[in-house]
Structures are given as structure tokens and as C-alpha cells.
Design a protein around this nucleic acid. Sequence first.
DNA 1: GTGAAAGCGCTAACAG
DNA 2: CTGTTAGCGCTTTCAC
Lengths: 348, 348
Amino acid sequence: MKDVTIIDIARKARVSTATVSRALNGLPGVSEQTYKKVHKIASEMGYRRNDVAASLVKRQTNTLGLIVPAISNPYFSSLMVAIKKRTLSFGYKLLICNSDWDVELELKLMKSLLERRVEGILLYPCKPVSDGRYDSFESPILVFGNNEKDGFCRAYVSVDNYKTGQLAVNHLLDQGYIKPAFLGGNVASLSSFYREQSYRDVLKQCHVDVPDSFSCGGKYSIQSGYERTAQLLEQSDVPDSFFCANDLIALGCMTAITEKGFRIGADIGVIGVDNVIYSALPQIELSTVAIPIELMGLNGVDVLLKLIQEENDENDKTKQEKERSVRDSIILLEPELVPRKTTQRAVL
Amino acid sequence: MKDVTIIDIARKARVSTATVSRALNGLPGVSEQTYKKVHKIASEMGYRRNDVAASLVKRQTNTLGLIVPAISNPYFSSLMVAIKKRTLSFGYKLLICNSDWDVELELKLMKSLLERRVEGILLYPCKPVSDGRYDSFESPILVFGNNEKDGFCRAYVSVDNYKTGQLAVNHLLDQGYIKPAFLGGNVASLSSFYREQSYRDVLKQCHVDVPDSFSCGGKYSIQSGYERTAQLLEQSDVPDSFFCANDLIALGCMTAITEKGFRIGADIGVIGVDNVIYSALPQIELSTVAIPIELMGLNGVDVLLKLIQEENDENDKTKQEKERSVRDSIILLEPELVPRKTTQRAVL
DNA sequence: GTGAAAGCGCTAACAG
DNA sequence: CTGTTAGCGCTTTCAC
């Protein structure tokens, strides 16, 4: 059951492979007649184009890579959907990878994508790339979620993580909570880092003092949020509110609170980050800080595509021009507070 | 910035490309010395293997394709995660595609995957493949969610959709609800079809009569569930319970019920299908019929891999043996009722 | 242990 | 409009 190739078609159609190639690709310079003949024979023989061979000779795969830390997290689902849509509209294929918050795996995936000759990579790193682990990678790479410019020039699309934390903690304080705890996400992640930073800063500014144990890292999952909250609520000194590094953690947090017999909002406030679709459900009504994730995705694709474009035009360009290339661009989007029931002290 | 190839390495190391290839791939027949030399030079020159070229000559890509109808649906997220893990453990790469419930797009994706020479495809079709639209595809294909054997031999991994519906509707009736409505999913989908079928059958068996308007199709989304429920609750004759074709629909359904001022469970019962992670949250406590989706994924990969294996061994095999190949295999998994609060008439 | 040579299936000048 | 030719970068016999 050997695959049929354009050679087989050429033989049968009594033309050259070049002509077959042209006809099959709809390129100019083929008579109506041969065009039809070739296509007819091709479909008769059940020909299926071999993209691998085409990619090799054309030296392009028309493919982008995307790496996210957790494919099943609805936040990243939204990102994937947005990116998928955008890349598709530009005629690019997308290779989706899941790093599972594992830096080693992430590195492997990066290499693998490059070996497969993707034209560019959209990377949502599991920890800041400022350690320089990708500095030697020459291909176009767009990094999500970093909001600092580090040594190597690279394009970023991110949200203001520090401000995100400020919005959340200030809201908690505004609502009359006085002992907020912080449930971080993956310890290494930049977003979690900045959110904790702002948590500490805001508390200090407002002269609010809480035990160190109120701030703890973990995983960005419901389970992790549940476990950590349950533990904190066991202690003698109990927090009166939780700032969770994402909505999943907050969901787990709420479960633990409910189980312990506290009333959410009235007794203990909860606020998350992301504004995942499930947070808006009337049974949940989770207060949160919304991240414009779809927008990040769209922007990311656009910037990456520009990056690729530049790469291709590299020859006809002065060094001067290169300086203000998009390689150094940082797009920083704004988070937005979405107050809901879980931070409402009294039912009005 | 031309890529460095094994030719460059060979030249620099003063060996042949064959030797470089062997060394880089860790194949036997290379002296310790040359092995080291080649690797050293390779990393010095920043060599990056070109998988496209390797795939072409080896005629294998070590890649599987996966097509799901909705990448952001948590049900499919779970499937993807399970499949990803399994394929990775076998050293296969995975190409994930989103058909967006669009048959045309699905077909395109199938073709595209084949052109990229994936070795096999895991397909969760947006509508039954019994229309024969893939009968001419010769590559190994594993179909999820079909539970009937159709004309063409093909391997299936599915859940008993009919039984799923029976479990749900019987549970509703058992709990004392007497006017269940059915909120279907994507009209064309087999799962929705069977679930509606069983809905009708069970009602008939139990001599329960409901208006035709109680059964309606839509999309497998929160939004769609919300809209349809809101509409049904406007009518004079109101259902006292909802059997939703999946949990997302049920979530939207619950929102609408709450908004209208009904109490979930006490006034109106709701049951979904899938047992998505969010359904278990204490604020939700959605009764549902659990589908062993991870298991489906694992089984799917295993069967597909066997299929591929067979394909390769095809030469040394009699026709007799082919008859009982896995090509015809159907794996049918069991759904399981998970009763929770949303179908509890009275608070005990 | 190593090299020479023949492709994998397709595209892209360059001629005609 | 069509054919010839020369690869794309790598693997793999088959000799040596």
C-alpha cells in the first residue's frame, strides 16, 4: 500500500513532475487541459500530498508552536482558542504543547518544536525566562506573562501582574476585611511572584499585619486551593479573607470555607484572578480580577507574525532599523476588578 | 543566518555525514572518539536537527493527530490531557486540532493531518462517521463516541450513550420529578441523539407525557443551556426538571432557574452528563452521569497504536488473521450515575 | 569503524 | 506552456 507520489501521477499523465506540481498547487503556467488531467488522475489514484517533503524543500512549515503550562486550565483554554482562531485566519497551523509547569519539559518542547521547524513559538513559560534559558534560541519567540524586560531582547505580551495584586488586595481591604491571606500559584511563576509582592506591599502600606503563614505557594488548581485553605482554617489565627492567585485556587478555597461552616463573604471573603467563565455562575459569583486573556492571545499572534516577517526581511535592512524592531516590544494589558458576591460582607 | 546541517559538521569533523548521523543518533558503530568529537562540534556550531528531513527519509513522523470538537470544553480538556500523557509515554508527539463542531473543518483537519503524515488519528467526530465520509481514508483512525458499527471497519472507543440517558431520566423520575425536559447538545452529535432517544423511550415506558417543546437541541455550552432554559421557563407549561446533554448546559440551566426565582432541586431538578470537575463544587453539586473520559483516552491511544502496529506488520499476515484485527474493535465503557444536590427534592 | 552513494517526495530555477 | 535538473537535510544500505 505504497503512497502515490507526483511521480506516479506524472508517469500516468505523461507529463513531468514539475508540471504535476504546478497543477496540483494551482500555480500559473499550466494549460487548462493538463490542469484538469492531472487533477483527475490525482484523485483517481487517491493521491495525498506529502507536506513533509514540501516543507523540506520550501524550507517552511507554515506552522507556529504554542506552549502553555496547563492545557486543562480554563484560562489557558481561552488563550488557546483565541490563538488558534487568529493563526488559522493567517493560514498558519498550530502545534499545541503542554509543559505541565515543568521547566525541563518546557525546554524539551521548545527544542522539539524548533526541530520540527515551526516558524515561531508562542510561549507561556512556567517560570520567568529571565534566567536566560532561551537566550540562545534564534527563532522568533513571543513570551506571554513576563512583564519585565530582561537581558535578551524578546517580545512580550503580558498583563500588569503587580497591579492585579493591588486591585485585589485593596478591594479586600475596602470591603472591610482586615486579615487577608494569600494563596499563591506555582511558586516559580512570575505572575504568582508579583501578586504576592503587591499583596505584601499593600498590606504594609495600609499598616495591616498578618502572620507569615498567611502567605503560601502551591499549585494553580482547585485541589491545591482547597487543601491550603483547609489547613489555614485549622490554625488558631484564622484569616478573614483570601486573595487567590487564580480562580481555580479560589474555587477550592471556597469549598474548604464552606465545609468548615463559614459563610463566604459574610465571614470570609474570597477573591481570585482570571475571571474564568465558571466564576460568573450565580452559585459561585466569585469576585476576581479579570485578565484580558483573549486579547493577549490575539496580540501575541500579531507580534509573533511581525517578528517572523522581520526575520524574513532581514537582508534588506540597516542596523538602525533593526534597533526599533518589534523584538523589543512589550505589550502590557490592564487587569480589571470584577467585584462579586464573595467579597460582600453583608447581604444588602 | 543559515541553519547548520550535518554536512557542516561532517566537514568540520573531517568525517562523513553518515558518521555524523550515526553519532548524533547514538547508533552503534561509532568510536567513542568520533562520537565525542561530533557531539562537541555539533553543540559548538549550534546544530539543531531537522526533523522534517529525517521524517521524509524515514517515512515516519512519530506523530499522532487528535481532533476534538471543542478544545475549551473541560470534558475534552480531560480527554486531551489523558491522551497527551499516554502518547508521550510511547514517545509519540501529538497534534491537537479543534473542529469547532464544524464538519467541513473537521474534514479539512483530517486531510491536513494526513498530509503532514501523522501515523494515526484519534478522532472525536462532531457527527457520526457512519455517513462514510472517512471510509476512503486508509490510515489508522480511532473514533471516539460512536457506538454503532457502521459499514466500514473502524475502531471505536465509546461510552454507552443510550444507557447514559436511561440513568439520567430514570433518576429524575425516581426522585419524584414528573415533567422532565431534555436540553440536547449539538444536534448532529451522536451522543445527543442517543441521549434524546433514551429520554423519549424512558418517558414512554413510564407513561409520562410531556409537550414536544420540552425537548430541544442547541449547543454544548453554558450560554446555550441558559438561553434555552430561560425560554422554557417563560412558557405556561413549565418543566419540573431538566436532563441536560452535558454539564455545561446544566450549569447554564441552573443559572436560568435561579434567576427566575425557582429553587434548584426543591422546585426544579437538574441533571447533566460528563461529571466535569466544576460539577462537584459544593456550591454547584450538580447531579450528573459520569463518563470515564480519561479511560476513553487511554484506551483510544492503545487501540490506535495497535492499529498502527498492524499496519506495519501487514506484509507477514494472512487474510485470515486480518479478519480479527483490531480494526473492527469496539470498546464500550460504562457511564455511572452521580446523584448530588440538584436532583434532591427536599433538604434532608 | 567509516565512507560513498542513492534516495525520501517535492519545488524551483532555467531552458526550451 | 512544459521539461530538465539540481537540490532541501537526512538516513541507510553496501562496501571497504
